[in-house]
Design a binder for these strands. Structure first.
Length: 690
DNA sequence: AGCCTTTGACCAGCG
DNA sequence: TCGCTGGTCAAAGGC
């Protein structure tokens, strides 16, 4: 299928049948797109291009809501639909949000459309959700990303990396939005550096979700970091590195590490709660570092997935998976009674492009000397040890990381304990029992009803977190894994992610001992577009209006992010695991919504222009951010969890072939995402006018 | 002899 | 119901 259709398919996978991110989002906003019923097939590229799918930005809201259907992307029919369904859906959604928030203990700011919307739009507004109000500066995306959706646990630093991972989901969006202020400037989209919309600022305590701390946010400047901080590295790296922000967790980093950035969380990250994405971001940064640090040796170190992780594995099958350039090998843990399996994909060079663990080991790892694997063991073991020492809380059961990661669906994730990590193709599932059952997965536990599920689906991170128990099929349906898949799967076609993956050191990263958040999962099918790319796609398509090209970029970005994270991990053997407390703090930071969160002093009224809202919320912002964030990498870094997620996200997204560090057009460093950005911007209705 | 890999075939899920 | 796909089985072979 071309363009969006493909994506649609993918998205469908990701999302629960009943809901799509768009619909969800739209529902919240009353957007026309939102009016679209879930069942509604995604608009086709040609249809959507311009009008197609646009995020409801301020303008969008107004326009779409106006019901005149004149606005872009809003067809009369759609407009009508909005009128018909808008309220209902919105109300339900809003209710959901609230409920979720309540569960999470987070006060989800309501979207105050009144504030956001242009006056005129308000007049004609046909669809309004009494329930849903978006505070100025708060983007729908942010809502999705909102911690409300994600459990605190979701956002936690990777034990191994000490970095935060993001959920493939919407986080990506948010993050994207925040990324690269510099780029923004380029586009003029954000002429005013001070533009509140972009600035991330601490939310008022009252606004902050429990897990979010005001600390998390820093000034925009702090949060947004220009590319320059991260000079393009290798081609492979370059893609990744473009990753806009180099935000780092508190985790101690190697001396080579870049800056204090660590402490800063992108709004996106914090906000999303999509830890995965957040992590990705961080990882990206790390990756950069990692890349630098990574040496050929590292690559070499990448050990066969089979044993380096501290367990002995028996290969019981190999198969060429569609959509994957490299054959997938199936391994079983050789330990008696241990049902853990893992799937490993390797590049021709022998580099592990992706590893997916399934199940939890019911036995201790082999002594290092007994391990067949060599290289990775060290780093892994160390990391793992650290993790274990941490008590697995933060990592394992902890609401922090584990939760998100756990998806536990089906085969590979079914074990609640399973952790899946898909960093650049690296997916680990299931840790040694460290993961607690689904409970650990807050996300899953959090959601119980359909709506919630839908939300989850829409919300990449959520979906990821979700499935603790689901069976494989279910997981597939939800595509929770999709994220990962994105990273490796369909998106593989894109391969950009791969590039990241190649980081090679991945192997090292793969220690079973560590828990990984699944930020991406791979869509098994050959769908070229799978992963997080979904989100990206949606984002991209939405903004760009182009639904016909793969969202490789997004995939890449996500993938890259993942990869980078992986790299970072692998790269920095010395990486110290953040202390639990630290982790918590860090996590909290990530929780924050990037943009105008309600209450955010800076963000506050941003909407005055609509910019804040539009920017941050809508695609424009998101898109632009994305582009900027990537800085030539992938426009898409953060796959929108809506899409993939999740998809994702999902991590899954991008199905570029993993192994090859190929350069995507999008990722062209030279581009720095500017082109994308411009295109997007051009297409996008700018906030104010909106 | 034991373990692992290879590889074709089979099975199940999904569209 | 069929075809596709992913995952698994199990025989054969190698170390």
């Amino acid at each position: 299928m071309g363009g969006f259709d493909d994506h649609g398919g993918i998205i469908g996978d990701w999302m629960p049948p009943s809901s799509s991110p768009r619909s969800f989002f739209a529902a919240m906003l009353g957007d026309d797109s939102g009016s679209r019923t879930v069942s509604e097939p995604p608009p086709k590229p040609d249809n959507n291009n311009d009008s197609g799918f646009t995020f409801p930005g301020p303008d969008r809201q107004g326009g779409s809501e106006n019901g005149d259907g004149n606005q872009r992307g809003l067809t009369v029919d759609q407009a009508t639909k909005k009128g018909e369904f808008g309220e209902q859906r919105m109300s339900s959604r809003a209710g959901l949000v609230e409920r979720m928030a309540a569960r999470a203990g987070h006060n989800a700011p309501r979207l105050n459309t009144d504030i956001i919307k242009p006056a005129d739009s308000l007049q004609n507004q046909q669809v309004r959700s009494p329930y849903l109000t978006i505070p100025p500066g708060l983007s729908p995306t942010s809502l999705l990303d909102s911690p409300v959706f994600l459990s605190n646990s979701l956002v936690q630093p990777s034990p191994t990396t000490g970095k935060f991972q993001f959920a493939p989901n919407g986080n990506g969006k948010s993050s994207m939005m925040f990324l690269d202020s510099s780029n923004r400037n380029k586009d003029n989209f954000f002429e005013d550096p001070n533009n509140s919309s972009f600035a991330f600022k601490p939310f008022p305590d009252h606004v902050n979700p429990p897990f979010m701390s005001t600390q998390s946010f820093q000034t925009n400047e702090a949060l947004v970091q220009p590319e320059k901080q991260f000079p393009p590295q290798k081609i492979e790296v370059a893609q990744n590195e473009t990753s806009s922000l180099h935000i780092r967790a508190d985790f101690p980093r190697s001396s080579t590490e870049k800056k204090p950035e660590a402490n800063f969380l992108t709004p996106f990250e914090s906000f999303n709660g999509n830890s995965e994405r957040n992590v990705q971001r961080l990882e990206d940064h790390d990756d950069d570092d990692a890349d630098q640090r990574i040496s050929g040796d590292n690559a070499n170190n990448a050990i066969s997935a089979s044993s380096e992780d501290g367990y002995n594995w028996r290969k019981y099958g190999q198969k060429q998976v569609k959509g994957s350039e490299y054959p997938r090998s199936y391994y079983k843990c050789t330990h008696p009674n241990c049902l853990v399996k893992k799937k490993v994909e390797r590049s021709h060079e022998g580099h592990i492009t992706e590893i997916i663990y399934k199940g939890a080991h019911n036995h201790p790892k082999l002594a290092p000397n007994r391990r067949s694997g060599i290289g990775s063991s060290i780093a892994l073991s160390d990391m793992q040890s650290a993790i274990n020492e941490q008590g697995g809380n933060g990592v394992d059961g902890g609401p922090s990381w584990g939760t998100n990661m756990q998806k536990g669906n089906g085969h590979w994730s079914q074990e609640s304990s399973n952790l899946e990590v898909t960093s650049s193709g690296l997916v680990m599932q299931g840790q040694n029992g460290q993961f607690e059952s689904s409970e650990a997965v807050d996300g899953s536990s959090t959601f119980s009803n359909d709506e919630e599920e839908d939300d989850r689906a829409t919300h990449g991170s959520v979906s990821l977190a979700y499935d603790g128990e689901g069976d494989e099929s279910e997981s597939k349906r939800r595509k929770v894994e999709a994220y990962a898949a994105d990273v490796s799967g369909a998106t593989r076609a894109i391969r950009e992610p791969r590039v990241v993956v190649q980081t090679t050191s991945e192997v090292d990263i793969l220690d079973d001992g560590y828990r990984w958040r699944k930020y991406g999962q791979k869509v098994v099918k050959g769908n070229p577009n799978p992963r997080a790319s979904h989100d990206l796609k949606s984002v991209i398509t939405t903004y760009e209006g182009k639904h016909n090209h793969d969202v490789p970029a997004a995939r890449n970005s996500s993938h890259a992010n993942n990869t980078m994270a992986a790299q970072a991990l692998s790269i920095h053997p010395q990486v110290h695991m953040p202390e639990p407390s630290r982790i918590q703090n860090t996590m909290a930071r990530f929780d924050r919504p990037p943009f105008g969160l309600p209450g955010g002093p800076q963000l506050g009224p941003t909407p005055t222009h609509g910019y804040g809202f539009a920017m941050s919320q809508q695609g424009p912002g998101g898109l632009a951010h994305m582009a900027m964030a990537n800085h030539g990498k992938m426009p898409v870094l953060p796959v929108h969890h809506y899409l993939g997620q999740p998809r994702q996200m999902n991590e899954m997204g991008f199905v570029l072939p993993k192994g090859e560090p190929k350069v995507e057009p999008m990722s062209d460093p030279g581009l720095n995402g500017a082109p994308m950005y411009h295109q997007m911007m051009n297409r996008l209705p700018l906030g104010p006018q909106m």
